[in-house]
């Protein structure tokens, strides 16, 4: 079979290509067009060149939101990835326990994002919330609407509760795919549990962990609904992440040009970091970086 014959398979990809074109590429092109113009209304626009990019790059509130976003995504990855792997290692491998664990783990993933925020608002309310009232009863003044640190802690708990199950499920799938022969060989060699994890389980989970890190980074970097519902970006601006700030500019102020320039910078950051993570994880355990 020559390469031309093989290439016919690309025609099967055409429907996806058209769907992606309509849902992603055409809107992206429009955003690029908006980013170099001042849009007053339909048909009323003025070309302004790179003015919006200069304005956005010099915006201190955007810099603050960007650092907040990096801190948030960094914490998400540092907590959720190891925790998800540990949960996957502790889960039963077969029997009713395995099925029950999978169902329980999947539950937070089934809840819509804005509902997650509402659940946690009620759960952490200092007067009637189960968690908020319990903490206050213990003598610790807890009110995430007034304290930035408590707002961050609540946000992190919500995020970890919501998304660690995804990492655990992916890691569990990776672990289940390891043939029993590997464990038998490790046992014969007298490998410790740590060595088995380091030399068998972790390298074999590389593919699923790549997906987990990429998904969690992109999702956490683009997060909007949960923090918007829980804190509304406050107290002050302490939980105003990039997407919340972007929506304020685009929808609140209807500044489409600066919002488009902001979106493109945001897109480039996500693209760069996703690519870096992908490259780094593809080379984990290969001895050297190729």
């Amino acid at each position: 079979m020559d390469k031309w014959e093989n290439n016919r398979a690309w025609f099967l990809v055409l429907p996806v290509f058209f769907i992606v074109a309509f849902s992603a590429i055409i809107p992206l092109m429009t955003v690029v067009n908006y980013s170099v113009q001042d849009i007053f209304g339909p048909g009323q626009r003025v070309f302004v060149g790179t003015e919006w990019f200069e304005e956005v790059l010099g915006d201190k509130r955007l810099h603050d939101a960007l650092w907040r976003q990096f801190l948030f995504s960094g914490l998400v990855l540092l907590i959720e990835i190891p925790l998800g792997v540990v949960i996957a290692l502790l889960m039963p491998k077969k029997g009713w326990g395995a099925s029950a664990s999978l169902v329980i783990l999947a539950l937070p993933l089934l809840i819509p994002w804005n509902v997650i925020g509402t659940i946690w608002i009620i759960f952490t309310r200092p007067d009637i919330g189960l968690l908020g009232a319990a903490i206050n009863t213990m003598g610790i003044a807890f009110d995430h609407t007034a304290s930035p640190i408590q707002a961050w802690i609540t946000l992190m708990f919500m995020e970890v509760w919501h998304w660690t199950p995804l990492v655990a499920l992916l890691a569990y799938a990776g672990l289940q795919a390891i043939p029993e022969a590997y464990y038998q060989a490790a046992k014969i060699d007298g490998a410790s549990a740590w060595s088995t994890f380091k030399y068998i389980q972790l390298p074999k989970m590389r593919g699923v962990l790549t997906i987990a890190v990429l998904l969690r980074f992109m999702d956490s970097f683009l997060i909007y609904a949960e923090p918007f519902v829980l804190t509304g970006g406050g107290p002050g601006n302490t939980t105003t992440f990039l997407s919340i700030y972007l929506v304020k500019i685009a929808v609140g102020q209807f500044d489409l040009g600066p919002a488009a320039a902001f979106s493109l910078i945001y897109f480039l950051i996500v693209l760069l970091f996703s690519w870096l993570f992908y490259q780094a994880l593809q080379n984990v355990g290969k001895g050297d970086v190729k």
Binding site: I26, M29, T30, V32, N33, Y34, V36, Q37, I39, P42, G43, R45, F47
Partner: peptide, 14 residues
């Protein structure tokens, strides 16, 4: 395609 707000520089870019 008016809603896409095309300009000559962005068209050339794409």
């Amino acid at each position: 395609l008016e809603w896409m707000a095309w300009t000559l520089p962005t068209a050339a870019f794409f």
